[in-house]
Design a protein around this nucleic acid. Structure first.
Lengths: 258, 258
DNA sequence: GAGTGGTCTAGACCACACA
DNA sequence: GTGTGGTCTAGACCACTCC
């Protein structure tokens, strides 16, 4: 743990007022949670007390509602959602794998299984919009939950983004996001994933360390990651053992029938 | 196809202005799409032309952005996302299974595999907050894509919600949502799903018609469905063959670092 | 009728891109 | 500097719930 040594400058996203209100409310909710009284103050009161407009309070509450933290009932009020605490991992945000494992209640660690440099095949060249024969890095990592293999990830990106001399040591400490942010000056703002399942045999064909997994079927995400300029910069594949990684998702059905 | 016969009254959700604007923009985008010019008019212009405030235009664009239909770049403009057309099935909305299969490019059909009435076990009673020994319906359906088994669903809900005389015929035509809306007067506004995978053997233990599936590993959603009063009314399990059902998900990373 | 959330507006100012 | 999206405000009116 070499914290604070080599403190890096990296692009920050500056928060806005409604995020601050959201954070404030989130902490407020966590503070009162055991009391049993799950009703929040009315929007007008929050607006007055916090010194922001009601619209801003509402935007914060909109977010909390979408995340399932609160429920709003027209004419009655805004309530803390008792279910929200049972959520283990929300699928949406695209979180770091280590944090994800910890959210599931395990101690996280990882190994870099493999760092290879190779020519992009046709499919990857198409997805990442590379020149023919352009070289890419392929980084395979395995993430452990209390020592059990829980996630295998394979990240693929153009060598031109991170320099030609990427060393295994540089990969050990950081996530691929960090590497691209530091060396390539670009950072990921959105991704698009495709979901499928594989059985053990299929997984072992696609990974180096697949045979370490304990499970017989895995959840697979194929992800294309876009940077701030809407360019596809990483193509990754993630294998999850759902015995350890329990994704949850709160979905609000909005059925406006035109 | 007995359309229009027995037209039913069911609760409607009335649209708001921003949904209308959203629909309008959605159609507008689809109309121009092949032109190659992917820039939308500026927000002020839309606001003037449509006769609504800029805030309302922005709310519509917010939604379209979250769905991945458009991209907005500060200082430059709003653009149609060329990727959006490749999306096959968005995971979020919780769509009807038949429509979901059609979105993947197949002809959809389904069979009711089984309608059984039984006493809730401890886990289901807890989830649905039922009395001890209360009876539930369990409806198993299998959905076919071009004749191939693609989804198996098992819906479980209290008999008290739909009357004690639910017949197999009543189930044939309608979704469980429709049944509860018609008989129970309640309808589903949100759900919470947990995601896991199973191999063939595990699936066959949990389903009647599992052995019809062609795949060796399945994607499984366990869902708790809540009605407008925040009561859990359906507990369902859904098995997907990801060879046929290709879920996609666009995720926007919002990393406000407090 | 009082309280509360849901929607919409008009206007202001800021931040970023591009010439 | 001009054009564009990003944020915030104050105020209005409506719809629903509960007394």
């Amino acid at each position: 743990m070499k914290a604070r040594e080599n403190m890096e400058l990296h692009p920050m996203i500056k928060p806005n007022l409604s995020s601050s209100v959201k954070n404030y409310l989130y902490k407020y909710i966590r503070s009162l949670d055991l009391g049993g009284n799950t009703k929040l103050p009315p929007e007008n009161e929050l607006s007055l007390n916090l010194g922001v407009s009601r619209v801003t309070v509402r935007r914060a509450l909109d977010e909390l509602e979408k995340e399932g933290i609160v429920l709003r009932i027209h004419g009655r009020g805004t309530f803390v959602n008792p279910e929200a605490l049972n959520i283990q991992v929300n699928l949406m945000p695209g979180e770091e794998f280590s944090r994800l494992i910890e959210s599931c209640g395990y101690k996280a660690s990882f190994e870099v299984a493999d760092v290879r440099k190779l020519k992009a095949d046709a499919e990857i060249a198409r997805i990442l919009q590379l020149e023919d024969e352009e070289e890419i890095y392929e980084i395979e990592k395995i993430y452990l939950a209390d020592g059990h293999p829980a996630i295998i990830s394979i990240d693929r990106f153009a060598c031109s983004l991170a320099g030609d001399d990427l060393k295994r040591e540089a990969v050990e400490g950081k996530s691929t996001f960090d590497i691209l942010r530091k060396f390539g000056g670009c950072f990921i703002v959105r991704d698009k994933i495709r979901i499928e399942t594989m059985n053990r045999r299929e997984m072992e064909q696609e990974t180096v360390y697949g045979r370490k997994m304990e499970c017989d079927s895995v959840l697979v995400f194929h992800g294309i990651n876009y940077n701030q300029d809407n360019r596809a910069v990483i193509y990754d594949t993630e294998f999850y053992d759902t015995k350890y990684i329990k994704f949850s998702l709160l979905r609000v059905k909005n059925v406006y029938e035109d």
